[in-house]
């Protein structure tokens, strides 16, 4: 494992400085000559000198079928009726650098819900609420704990966590949506997809593309 200095690795706006869990955005890593690191075919782990260590994840565990190093590409051909698929569940501290959801073939958009939870320091799952879903009868509570392509479409394509990048309005065939911003999950996170239809599977090619940077 090659050890490279922070200044060699980080391409980041002023004022710069070492990697910090509280300063997770400049996570794109570059080599001394400006070339991106972590996109080559070979496994790559990068340690920063001192106690602050960043590691570019290569092959992540899960239902991986293909993909370049550092990416976890899951293909789900269907989501069974009334079933929640656990797409990713980790307790490792990570920065979710990018997270894309892609699906094709016709289905009812409102049948699909995606739930995203951050873990707290005790390992409990804390859902990320939908802005605007405050429950007046429950102070601090929210009515919606999920996101769906249908709600995103109705909201003009954007929510506080997800953006509907593109979708086919004809028969709800394809959609691409992504997480709006990198998120630091210091104690891990869980991403699940739920089919709320209790009598029919969603026959969809559902692809999730996550790029994580592990913090350790």
């Amino acid at each position: 494992m090659a050890v490279i200095t922070v200044r060699q690795l980080l391409h980041r706006p002023a004022p710069g400085g070492p990697i910090s869990a509280n300063d997770p955005l400049p996570v794109r890593l570059y080599g001394p000559n400006g070339q991106p690191i972590g996109l080559q075919d070979d496994a790559l782990k990068v340690a920063l000198s001192g106690s602050k260590v960043a590691r570019v994840a290569t092959q992540l565990p899960g239902n991986t079928t293909s993909g370049s190093p550092g990416r976890n590409v899951n293909f789900i051909n269907e989501i069974a009726a009334a079933t929640t698929v656990i797409i990713r569940d980790t307790t490792s501290p990570v920065i979710i650098e990018s997270l894309y959801l892609l699906h094709g073939r016709a289905f009812t958009f409102s049948d699909l819900r995606v739930h995203f939870y951050l873990r707290d320091s005790s390992g409990n799952l804390r859902f990320v609420p939908v802005f605007g879903s405050d429950d007046p009868s429950n102070d601090g509570g929210f009515t919606n704990q999920y996101f769906s392509p249908e709600s995103l479409k109705n909201a003009g394509g954007k929510s506080n966590l997800w953006e509907l990048v593109a979708w086919n309005v004809d028969n709800h065939r394809q959609a691409i949506w992504r997480m709006l911003t990198p998120i630091t999950a210091l104690h891990g996170y869980r991403l699940v997809a739920e089919n709320v239809n209790q009598s029919a599977a969603i026959m969809v090619r559902f692809q999730v593309d996550i790029r994580e940077v592990l913090l350790s």
């Binding site: 239902n63 069974a80 009726a81 009334a82 079933t83 929640t84 698929v85 656990i86 569940d89 209790q198």
Partner: peptide, 19 residues
């Protein structure tokens, strides 16, 4: 309540009532 199970290495959750 829901219940968890694993099939082909993938985790699933389903409402007990529905099943």
């Amino acid at each position: 309540d829901g219940f968890c199970f694993v099939v082909d290495g993938v985790g699933y959750i389903m409402p007990i009532r529905v099943m």
